[in-house]
């Protein structure tokens, strides 16, 4: 999809990242600095959540998404998201409103109440797509190669599906994130059930099932002895990180080496780290402390 705005984006932080995992925001802002594009903060509201709000009232979901899209349209900027949920909601709503006259007229009538009109002239991008487009520049920028590290990547459902609208990658055999890990000289390791959902969607409504799904995934990741799990979505992040802590507490199970949990990292953090930014505060705020930096320290890569 061609960019509407050249080298500038409206940065869509969403709710979970700035209000719960601000270290992902900080890492993203740092990583963006290394590349030739600008971001602008706008007073966006909740995207809104593709599961909760859409399930409760689909029309509200579309209207609130359109409200956010209008804010970026007024600034003539494409939207850049850091979260799969925001990415899916804004992309799908954007497409539906662009192509379905009936829905657009209905939503614009609602938006008229607050003096806005959806025009449908901007695009929505995930930060991972942007990094992937810029991947040929990365090798020259790397300050800390991740050569000895093994990573298990998890894409997350709402980055890939509905594929016909999002068009990010093959919905069953995606490669974008694996390639981005390899660009940092890290090893993206294959594991079983890689394409399985993390189970966060039923965290609130069916917690036991949500736990069973993440246990299934963690068991497979554990077999590979990965140094960390790489995610690109704060909801997957929470599911993997809090999930492991709760499973340890409730079931006494751990999946990492020596009875430890497996660290979870958003790709933006990994990139910022590899690019040489000081990430000690960001990594310090993780509940599961990172172990792969021990390997890097042994290799003389310097402190984080």
């Amino acid at each position: 999809m061609p960019r509407y705005s050249e080298n500038a984006f409206a940065l869509f932080l969403g709710c979970t990242i700035p209000l719960r995992f601000p270290f992902i925001e900080s890492a993203s802002r740092k990583a963006i600095k290394a590349f030739d594009f600008e971001t602008k903060d706008l007073p966006f509201g909740c995207c809104p959540d593709p599961l909760g709000v859409q399930s409760f009232d689909k029309e509200t979901w579309a209207a609130l998404a359109a409200h956010n899209l209008c804010l970026a349209e007024e600034e003539d900027l494409d939207i850049l998201t850091l979260c799969n949920g925001c990415f899916e909601t804004l992309s799908v709503a954007n497409a539906e409103l662009q192509h379905n006259d009936k829905i657009r007229i209905r939503v614009n009538k609602i938006l008229g109440e607050v003096g806005k009109e959806f025009k449908g002239k901007i695009n929505v991008r995930h930060i991972i797509q942007e990094f992937h487009d810029l991947r040929t520049l990365i090798p020259d920028l790397i300050a800390r190669p991740l050569a000895n590290c093994k990573f298990a990547v998890h894409y997350g459902c709402h980055f890939l599906r509905p594929a016909e609208i999002l068009q990010t990658d093959h919905s069953e055999h995606p490669v974008i994130l694996d390639e981005l890990v390899q660009v940092l000289q890290g090893n993206s390791i294959p594991y079983l059930k890689k394409g399985l959902c993390c189970g966060a969607g039923v965290y609130g409504t069916d917690f036991p099932t949500s736990t069973k799904i993440i246990q299934e995934k963690l068991a497979e990741v554990g077999k590979t002895r990965a140094d960390a799990i790489i995610v690109i979505c704060p909801t997957c992040f929470r599911q993997y990180e809090s999930g492991q802590i709760l499973i340890k507490r409730n079931h006494g199970e751990t999946y990492g080496d020596n009875g430890r949990e497996i660290p979870v990292i958003h790709y933006a953090e990994l990139l910022a780290f590899a690019l040489g930014f000081n990430m000690s505060e960001e990594f310090n705020q993780h509940r599961i402390k990172l172990s792969f930096n021990e390997k890097l320290l042994e290799g003389g890569m310097g402190t984080i």
């Binding site: 700035p18 601000p22 706008l42 029309e59 109440e113």
Partner: peptide, 25 residues
């Protein structure tokens, strides 16, 4: 935590507008 990382303040969303939309729908 945000202060520790020198992150900018969070821009408050247009709550009036959002609440109006919630009423209309």
């Amino acid at each position: 935590r945000r202060k520790k990382m020198n992150l900018p303040g969070i821009l408050p969303p247009d709550l009036n507008g959002i609440q109006k939309i919630l009423k209309t729908t």
